[in-house]
């Protein structure tokens, strides 16, 4: 564990999470959420939880992003709230 690397990735994770919540374009939010998932994957792998990191990379960054994009194409791209 390198705490400087931990702190850097964790800061980026928080920034990505805030952006994904606040952005109005839902497709952009999906892309930022994919980045968030991949940074979480890096964080898990860096802390030694390789199995969790693998799950996060496949499900979080891979398949769920495609599911979100497929759902957005069937609904609307702009968020109104």
């Amino acid at each position: 564990m390198i705490w400087q690397l931990d702190l850097m990735i964790l800061t980026l994770v928080v920034v990505c999470a805030l952006v994904a919540i606040n952005i109005k374009d839902l497709l952009g939010a999906t892309v930022v959420f994919g980045i968030y998932s991949f940074l979480m994957c890096l964080l898990w792998a860096e802390m030694g939880a390789v199995d969790v990191a693998f799950t996060e990379a496949t499900v979080g960054a891979g398949v769920s992003t495609i599911f979100f994009i497929a759902a957005i194409l069937r609904t609307t791209r702009r968020s109104r709230d």
Partner: peptide, 28 residues
């Protein structure tokens, strides 16, 4: 990933997602 799941990172869930993603990629 599926067949090495019991002695390396990975397993049924992750391998299943990767296999499913290959068919999703084909559909895309």
């Amino acid at each position: 990933v599926i067949v090495h799941g019991h002695y390396s990172p990975g397993g049924g869930f992750q391998g299943g997602v990767i296999l499913g993603a290959s068919f999703i990629l084909l559909a895309l």
